[in-house]
């Protein structure tokens, strides 16, 4: 029972990271109608920036995270402006291939700068741990922080999209780009903002991921990126609460699957669940089938 609880909590923690990454996928998809496959690699860049800030510049962890967020935000906006914006009217496939290209560009640039030798990510947030059941169940500070960060981000994003003018404008663009333009909403600026937010979240996710799984190398972002994308589809791509639920479920399924079924098959299980869900709910758990009223 205690071990189940431990796996479950680890699952929530991993799932929280997936959820934060999935938010980036789902927001960009919702607003720019594209799959930004470079998103996973932005996580990796964020983790490296935080790593450098802490190891070489000796900055405190929080400041390092802030640095990573700033760099990733700029990176996201630049990627969007240089690689995706010129393709706004182009075929979907061209955009998709470009995104994959950007993904490799980021990985290989990281390889050039930081080499392929894995870096050991420093333990960032050592603020103690919670011990339950006479020390049989230890919840690390990373785990707690990851879950708390996830909840805070979720609440902040919900408030942003439901209360602020720019947040509402984002929803408007996501529903009908042309109509949004007719309202006077600058669509390009809105898309930039979406990339900025998504990338800042990626930086946070990168640091959280690497503080729980401290091996950092140029491909660090790709697997979590793909799984988070899966989480976004699982929850219903374009839906913010969907990304949240999808991410959490995926993390829990992965950890429980690895613990009780097979370590090797844990990843495969994640994708198998996705396939099953999509068979019955093609739009994902919270996705709405698109319908139009004439």
């Amino acid at each position: 029972m205690v071990s189940f609880l431990r796996f479950f909590i680890n699952g929530i923690s991993l799932g929280s990271v997936y959820a934060i990454i999935a938010l980036g996928y789902t927001m960009v998809y919702g607003i720019a109608k594209m799959l930004n496959f470079a998103h996973g690699d932005v996580i990796m860049v964020g983790a490296y920036i935080a790593f450098c800030a802490m190891s070489y510049l000796n900055l405190p962890p929080l400041l390092a995270v802030l640095c990573a967020m700033v760099v990733c935000t700029c990176l996201g906006v630049v990627i969007e402006g240089l690689a995706y914006r010129p393709l706004r009217q182009a075929a979907k496939l061209a955009v998709l291939i470009t995104a994959i290209g950007v993904s490799y560009l980021l990985q290989n640039t990281a390889l050039l700068i930081w080499s392929s030798n894995p870096k050991v990510f420093p333990s960032v947030f050592n603020v103690g741990q919670i011990r339950l059941f006479d020390g049989n169940l230890v919840i690390s500070s990373e785990t707690i922080l990851t879950i708390v960060a996830n909840i805070v981000i979720m609440i902040a994003l919900t408030l942003f999209t439901s209360r602020t003018k720019m947040g509402k404008a984002m929803r408007a663009v996501s529903e009908d780009r042309g109509a949004a333009e007719l309202m006077g909403i600058n669509v390009n600026r809105t898309i930039s903002l979406t990339f900025a937010i998504g990338s800042a979240l990626a930086a946070i996710a990168g640091v959280l991921l690497c503080s729980s799984y401290p091996t950092l190398q140029p491909t660090t972002g790709s697997m979590p990126g793909i799984k988070a994308f899966t989480a976004a589809v699982f929850g219903g791509i374009g839906s913010i609460p969907g990304a949240m639920i999808g991410g959490l479920l995926l993390g829990i399924i992965e950890i429980l699957g690895k613990a009780y079924i097979s370590t090797e098959l844990g990843d495969a299980l994640v994708f198998a669940v996705l396939i099953v869900v999509l068979l019955f709910k093609p739009a994902g758990l919270l996705g709405k089938p698109i319908r139009e009223k004439v």
């Binding site: 003018k165 509402k168 929803r171 408007a172 109509a179 949004a180």
Partner: peptide
Amino acid sequence: LCPEGRRVFQQMTVRENLEMGGFT
């Protein structure tokens, strides 16, 4: 322009739609 097919923001409330109209 009040476009063909109305194109109101279906998933936003009436008030939010109107607020978007006053975006500028």
